[in-house]
């Protein structure tokens, strides 16, 4: 069954009549894949997820989860999805165990079933030792794991993760990725997630859509997207003071050569295959290679290519984005 689990067509959300948070977004997610929405803060990721999980009504367009319309069959959607929100929503004054049981109650799961599942889930996310401690004593990573466990109590077929590793340190982040992968396999789920971490999208997602200012800019397999940029970059320097551009250009699969202060930037289809040919050709012509480096394009290059901005830059020069994000947040809260 490789049907499309999530289908969005022209999904749009306008806040306060003029703030377009999500702008005619269309995509589909296939069974069993981890689909990621990648974009800077305020790009419309959370708004999209909130429409898919039936918390927000779309202004325009339609979306369905497992064939159920998110507006007309909202209750059916709610029963088959699990949600792990961006915030830590577990009740701090209750214990981890009590929180999971509470989630179970909200899904109408009989207590004897939810008790069994809670024990199992706590084991899975390695919180068994802390299950009777109040959540206020938990660390960020533990809370995230608890949120994951809560989101799984109804054995969802589709799991929605909103910025699953937001604010976690690198180690905890990697651990959380492993949990997500394992849980996905264990429960045979389809996962829809949002992130603004490039590494996360790259390592975790089978397919991603890059979203910016409410629009999907490009979508696809992260590897494909990177390859679509036109392959790798070889940077090379030689001992001799000579122009070797023509020699390099004559090599197979070389797309572009640029001389940058004595070192050459060569754009090629595949760095691994072409680099030996370059060295070979230069040696044949009597040149000595002193340095060679090989860089593969990152998702940041993909983002740069399509938006004209670097995502890392936008993360660092936060001002405009913070303002935009605040507006959206406020509108969302209203």
């Amino acid at each position: 069954m490789t049907e499309e689990v999530i289908v969005a067509r022209g999904l749009t959300k306008v806040f306060n009549r003029n703030l377009v948070a999500v702008d005619h977004v269309s995509f589909s997610v296939k069974h069993g894949e981890i689909f990621g929405f990648l974009g800077p803060n305020g790009a419309g990721k959370t708004t999209t997820i909130n429409m898919l999980i039936t918390v927000l009504k779309p202004t325009e367009g339609t979306a369905s989860v497992l064939g159920y319309d998110v507006v007309k069959q909202a209750n059916e959607v709610r029963r088959v999805i699990g949600v792990v929100p961006q915030e830590y929503t577990a009740d701090e004054d209750l214990t981890g165990y009590e929180n999971i049981i509470l989630c179970g109650d909200l899904y109408g799961i009989p207590r004897e079933v939810s008790r069994k599942r809670a024990v199992e889930l706590l084991e899975l996310v390695e919180l068994t030792d802390f299950k009777d401690k109040r959540v206020e004593t938990y660390s960020g990573g533990m809370r995230r794991r608890l949120e994951l466990a809560c989101g799984l109590i109804n054995r969802p077929r589709v799991l929605f993760l909103d910025e699953p590793t937001l604010g976690l340190d690198v180690q905890t982040r990697t651990a959380t990725w492993n949990y997500i992968k394992r849980l996905k396999e264990e429960y045979d789920m389809t996962v829809f997630m949002t992130t603004h971490y490039l590494e996360e999208a790259d390592t975790l997602c089978d397919r991603i859509a890059i979203i910016d200012y409410g629009k999907i800019i490009v979508a696809g397999d992260p590897e494909e997207l990177k390859h679509s940029l036109g392959g790798d970059i070889i940077t090379i320097s030689i001992k001799e003071d000579a122009d070797i551009s023509n020699i390099i250009r004559s090599i197979e699969n070389v797309k572009e050569v640029k001389n940058e202060n004595g070192s050459y930037r060569i754009k090629v289809e595949s760095g691994e295959l072409t680099a030996p040919l370059v060295i070979e050709a230069l040696r044949r012509n009597g040149y000595t290679v002193t340095r060679l480096s090989l860089t593969e394009p990152t998702l940041n290059d993909v983002y740069l290519e399509y938006t004209g901005r670097s995502m890392r830059d936008t993360e660092e020069s936060k001002e405009a984005f913070r303002a935009h994000r605040m507006t959206i947040r406020r509108a969302r809260a209203r």
């Binding site: 009740d91 209750l94 009590e98 109804n154 054995r155």
Partner: peptide, 30 residues
Amino acid sequence: MSSVNEYHPSLIRGLWALTVRELKKWLNDP
């Protein structure tokens, strides 16, 4: 393929669960 979630939430169950949550918060804080 996991089976479709067979449980339906009821108003009373949900109501009670959410109320108990708040009362617990409150009673935990003398």
